[in-house]
């Protein structure tokens, strides 16, 4: 059974990113009244970019070509830790969620460094924004997982997401955490309302402005890694809300998680079609709202601590 789950996990991690981006784009097209590109169009885009000869800025150093590979390596390693189906991750150990967050942090640092490497003021601006908003999202992520760990009495990522304790509180905790995680996902994956991936003005970008000077294989790798990160984070939300456990109903659990990732992608697409990007000044408040949600669930667990370990 664990072989089946491993195959599913790796398939989601490596293949689904292409479709997740495809679904988001398709939803946006349909909403705008267009037919939109094929769901796996991203695949052709990546292959085309991989074949191209890159052009580097005159200013860049050896950091620039290496950074995309570090980003991809951290994302792949982190994806082995995060669960998609509750109770299963290829590599789980106590406290693995800390390693997950810090591995992604390493990737982000290299993305920012490659942006600063070009000496462009615009890319420096993007790096500065990315550093700020992701630093603010970090406590939301870790505090949320810490609260789940306390409530569930477990220490590893894969066991955190197994229901434990009274179902009502459990449900509230899970929904709150999923909501907060969704905010983290929007910030980390640079999606509306935290960032607009399709904006045309460099001044208003966060993620896209950092990769202005990336071209060819470097651009492909960064884009693929960023899609993979988004898939991973929606996988975690799916695992948290998944009512089926990996041991008793593996097939249902897998189907639910797969469908849920699609749902998250549809939600992202809908949000992108319906609302505008937040002003930069409002973004810390946006993160703070997610932090408050997590804090509320922490208070809830404290108040009911008799029921938990």
């Amino acid at each position: 059974m664990s072989n089946f789950l491993l195959v599913f996990h790796l398939a989601i991690v490596f293949v689904a990113p292409i479709f997740v981006i495809g679904i988001v784009n398709r939803v946006k097209s349909l909403w705008a009244g267009r037919r939109g590109p094929r769901l796996y169009q991203t695949w052709f885009d990546l292959v085309r970019l991989l074949r191209k000869t890159p052009v580097y800025s005159q200013v860049t150093s050896w950091i620039f070509p290496i950074a995309p590979l570090v980003i991809l390596a951290t994302t792949i390693t982190a994806s082995l830790l995060g669960p998609i189906v509750p109770g299963y991750a290829p590599l789980g150990f106590a406290g693995d969620f800390v390693a997950f967050a810090y591995l992604l942090g390493l990737g982000k640092i290299f993305l920012m460094l490659s942006a600063l490497d070009t000496g462009s003021a615009f890319e420096g601006m993007g790096a500065s924004r990315e550093a700020t908003y992701s630093a603010l999202a970090e406590p939301v992520f870790l505090l949320g997982l810490g609260t789940l760990a306390w409530a569930g009495g477990a220490h590893s990522f894969q066991d955190l997401v197994i229901p434990n304790g009274s179902w009502a509180i459990d449900a509230v905790l899970r929904v709150t955490f999923a909501g907060a995680m969704f905010v983290v996902l929007l910030i980390e994956a640079a999606r509306v309302p935290a960032d607009d991936p399709t904006t045309h003005l460099e001044l208003t970008m966060v993620h896209e402005v950092m990769i202005l000077d990336h071209s060819g294989p470097e651009l492909a790798i960064v884009q693929y890694a960023s899609a993979m990160k988004m898939t991973m984070l929606s996988g975690i939300i799916a695992a948290v809300l998944n009512p089926f456990s990996e041991t008793s109903y593996p097939i249902l659990a897998v189907l639910f998680s797969g469908a849920f990732i699609v749902l998250v992608a549809v939600c992202v697409g809908l949000i992108e079609s319906l609302i505008a990007r937040l002003r930069f000044r409002a973004l810390p408040l946006f993160t703070f709202a997610a932090f408050l949600a997590v804090l509320t669930s922490l208070v809830l667990v404290t108040a009911n601590q008799g029921e938990f370990h």
């Binding site: 150093s61 967050a101 600063l116 420096g124 790096a127 500065s128 630093a135 603010l136 406590p139």
Partner: peptide, 22 residues
């Protein structure tokens, strides 16, 4: 966690400004 995030910003800023660009 927030200390981790802030120190990531801080080291990116320090290394990026000293060693990267022109």
């Amino acid at each position: 966690a927030i200390v981790g995030g802030l120190s990531a910003l801080s080291i990116t800023r320090a290394f990026g400004l000293i060693f990267l660009g022109l």
